[in-house]
Structure formats: structure tokens, C-alpha cells
């Protein structure tokens, strides 16, 4: 059976995992792109059948076009709607879901058709389980996976500019770079310290290791906010820096989801924690159950030896 999956995107980088997921479900893919011309162009190159493009006017943001997306959604023959997790994309997806009379769920990692029923797999309980949900009608899914590359072998998809109804007055007043830790954002290796480090003086030992690794230093929120051992722009997480190093070495960090959100894009997370039950071992790539005071000098030696 053929069915349509419509993707709602507000930035080019949101599209590849969504398009890949939609294609692997065997669906015809349609993109609703809300943004500038570059977004429309990027959207035409992800293997979609067509792209509906809503151009964002000067001084406005994508959220201003909620009614325009809803109007498209009300008429769309979509069985499934997908968006990335950015605030702007989710705002539009919510509007599309309501206009389309669709169910709306988060955490999506896979979508497929089982007879007439759409099956959605999603991360639930902070990733502790994968839940399967079944929808007999249309369903909108906030996607939670960065993985997958779409098949883009076909020609560029046609871009259809949408004659949008008047946008809402959702205006951008300013954008500033958050207090910068530029080195951290682009670092290939990052060492993060948490409350497992007992005293400020012990940071010297960790900083020596970071130098040997060619790594930048980062920390958990309490190390910056409560203890002030590092400036605020060094803490990683949901409320702090989002980093994408090759390796994130977490020393004495419990691995609460708020912290781990900041290192989701790391290629590998190495956890060193003396508590074998620490939640960080659930999501880390590599782990060592050890006292960091023993392990840090040992790792420095191992790096020297090799």
C-alpha cells in the first residue's frame, strides 16, 4: 500500500534523518519547508516527491507561519507527519497535527505500516525502553534520531511556493551567541568532570590528562553553578553547551539525562565512575568502573606508553 509521509522542517540539518526514516518505511515523502531559500533548496535534495515552501518574511520566525502549515495540513493526504525536535519545528508540527486530526507523539525512532495501521517506535522513559504505538488514523511524530541518510539518487524535487495566509506577528528581536566557549564547541576531544571530583585542587590532575589527550575541559552543571570551579560556559547539557566531539570522557559524572543531552552528538562517550549502577553506563559507549583518582593517572600513563 502506498502512503504519504510529510516532513515539517525549519532548518536544513533536520531533514536527512526524517527523509531517511520516511523512505525506509516505503512511503512517498513530501516536505513542508518553512524558512529561507537555502532551506527550500536543501529540501529539494532529500529525495522527496515535492516540497511545499513557505518563505519566512524579514524579521519573522518560522512559528509565525503556524496557520499556513495548518492550512496545508488540513488538506494533506498524509498518513504520518514527522519533524525534528527543534522548538520551531515542533511548534509547527503540533499545529499540523491538530489541523490534520492526527495523534501526536514524541521520541520517534522508526515508523512502518502494518496493514492499515501505522506503527511508531519511540524512545520512552529517558531511553530506558522502546515503546511501540499503533495508530489507525494519521499520526504526527517528533523524531528523536540523528541517524540515517536518505536516498537522494533521483532528480531534485519540485519546490512549490505556498501562498501563505498572513503570518502571525512572531518577531525576532535579537540573536546572540550564548556566553561562548568556542574551543569547546569545536573540540575533537573533551574531558568533563562532575561531582565525583572531590576538591578544586584535584582539577590539576584532570587538566594534565586533558592536555595529554589534546582535550578541552568541560563539566557538569553543579561544578560550574554551585562550586564555580569552571565558568558557566564550560558546563555541558540541556541548559549548557551542546558539544559534538569525537570523544567525551566523563569523570565522576552520574549521567543524568539533563547532562547527557549536551553530548548526544559525541561519537563516543567514555564514562569513568566508581558506582557500577551509575546511569551513565546505560548510554555511554565505553565504561570503566573505577575510582577516578586511580584511573586518571593510569590513563595518562597509558597515553604516554602508546
Amino acid at each position: 500500500m502506498s502512503f504519504e509521509i510529510w516532513l515539517v522542517a525549519t532548518a536544513a540539518e533536520e531533514l536527512p534523518p526524517l527523509a531517511a526514516a520516511a523512505q525506509s518505511g516505503g512511503a512517498t515523502v513530501v516536505v513542508v519547508a518553512v524558512g529561507g531559500r537555502e532551506l527550500a533548496q536543501a529540501a529539494s535534495a532529500v529525495g522527496a516527491a515535492k516540497v511545499h515552501w513557505i518563505e519566512v518574511g524579514p524579521g519573522l520566525v518560522a512559528e509565525a507561519y503556524g496557520p499556513a502549515v495548518a492550512r496545508l495540513a488540513a488538506e494533506a493526504p498524509a498518513r504520518v507527519w514527522l519533524s525534528g525536535p527543534s522548538p520551531a519545528a515542533r511548534a509547527l508540527l503540533g499545529g499540523a497535527a491538530v489541523a490534520a486530526g492526527a495523534a501526536l507523539v514524541g521520541g520517534g525512532t522508526a515508523v512502518s505500516l502494518d496493514g492499515q495501521t501505522v506503527l511508531v517506535e519511540r524512545n520512552a522513559l529517558d531511553g530506558a525502553v522502546i515503546e511501540t504505538l499503533a495508530a489507525d488514523g494519521p499520526v504526527a511524530v517528533v523524531w528523536d534520531s540523528n541517524e540515517g541518510q536518505p536516498d537522494v539518487s533521483g532528480s531534485a524535487s519540485p519546490v512549490l511556493p505556498v501562498a501563505a495566509p498572513a503570518p502571525l506577528a512572531v518577531e525576532r528581536r535579537s540573536v546572540e551567541a550564548a556566553a561562548g566557549a568556542d574551543g569547546l564547541a569545536s573540540a575533537e576531544r573533551v574531558v568533563g568532570v562532575g561531582r565525583g571530583v572531590k576538591a578544586r585542587a584535584d582539577l590539576a590532575m584532570v587538566e594534565d590528562l586533558a592536555r595529554a589527550l589534546g582535550a578541552e575541559m568541560a563539566c557538569s552543571m553543579p561544578i560550574a553553578d554551585d562550586l564555580h570551579w569552571y565558568p558557566e560556559e564550560r558546563y555541558v547539557g540541556r541548559s549548557g553547551q551542546k558539544i559534538a566531539p569525537l570523544v567525551y570522557l566523563a569523570l565522576g559524572i552520574s549521567g543524568e539525562p539533563q547532562h547527557m543531552e549536551g553530548v548526544r552528538s559525541a561519537k563516543a562517550v567514555v564514562a569513568v565512575n566508581n558506582n557500577p549502577e551509575a546511569v551513565i553506563f546505560r548510554t555511554a559507549t565505553y565504561g570503566v568502573v573505577a575510582d577516578l583518582y586511580e584511573f586518571v593517572p593510569a590513563l595518562a600513563r597509558a597515553l604516554e606508553d602508546s
Partner: peptide
């Protein structure tokens, strides 16, 4: 508009652990 069809643990079960001495 959706019905739960059950939950399972993720395929990837936690970190690959290295043991032995610290060295």
C-alpha cells in the same frame, strides 16, 4: 489516537566495560 503495543529494552544495552586493574 494511538494505542500502546508494549515496550522493550533497547537493543544496545549499555557501555562496553573495561575491567582489570586501572592500568
Amino acid at each position: 489516537g494511538v494505542a500502546a503495543r508494549g515496550t522493550r529494552r533497547p537493543d544496545r544495552q549499555g557501555a562496553r566495560l573495561f575491567d582489570g586493574s586501572a592500568d
